[in-house]
Amino acid sequence: MANRNAENREAGGKRIDAATGTETVGHEWDGIEELDTPMPRWWLWTLYLTIVWGIAYVILYPAWPLIDRATVGVLEWSSRGELAEDMRLADLETQTFREQLAAIDVVKLQDNPELLRQAIAGGRAAFQINCSQCHGSGAAGSQTLGYPNLNDDAWLWGGDLKSIHYTIEHGIRQPTENEERQSIMPPFEGVFEAAQLEALVGHVQSLGNDQASHPVGAQLYADNCASCHGPSGQGSRELGAPNLSDAIWLRGGSAAEIRAQILNPKMGVMPGWKERLDEATVKMLTAYVWSLGGGERISEDAADPAVRTDVEP
């Protein structure tokens, strides 16, 4: 054996493995050697097949990188094109739903659970794009900036589907719009003396609870505020006057915050979305805001004057 291997080495060959009669590749790692077993012929054909595959791929698909794009390929396929096609198909799939939604009276959504469910899902996405900048991604608003929380059950302009829909379409205090959603609170800077102001602030703070308040404050309130905010501070949805008797303060409930609001009131504005969004999207947003937990059913509030709007779908 050793002799034969020596002969083989002299002839320029490698060591021959005794068990298999195959040459080794000539390396050794800690006594482990590798056999130089020939590959099966068909294996070579798989290599040729991959080459053919590669050539076909280069012809059919984008392959060679150029400066600002790649070669187009005979099939003119691109990942962007595929995405665009997928988006188009997805839009087609929601087509009927959007048409249905555009056609239906927004109030009827509350009795159509299936359509409402889809509208809420679509509204959630549209809210993130169009509304979350002010109202926050969780629709919680901001007390420091005066953006109302849309999750609670306190509504400035009404919390039923029709009112929400109107608000979204026309916005709040938009100069180009009609007279709805326009009311403003006058500034009382310089109107009251300091003691009067303190009494008024005390009275406003007392509206939410049953504590007795200063008669001067009550009188000042009745004279100056009750016309909009109501005699007991329940507010007015027609005028967008906040309810002062509930636990929710749009701009804070401390004495300093109330005082600042009386002297130099800040009033929220909101753009109208009628021109920017299509009818179906506005209705989806309506459904979403309505669904956040404070939505009111329209039958319950039919007597509420705020429900009356001049827009009849």
Binding site: M1, N8, A11, G13, P38, M39, P40, R41
Partner: peptide
């Protein structure tokens, strides 16, 4: 199970083999 010893002088240089 020791197989036959191959008393060959030079192995043919084979990369691939036919099936």
């Amino acid at each position: 199970h020791e197989p036959h010893e191959p008393p060959r002088q030079n192995l043919p240089n084979k990369l691939f083999e036919k099936r």
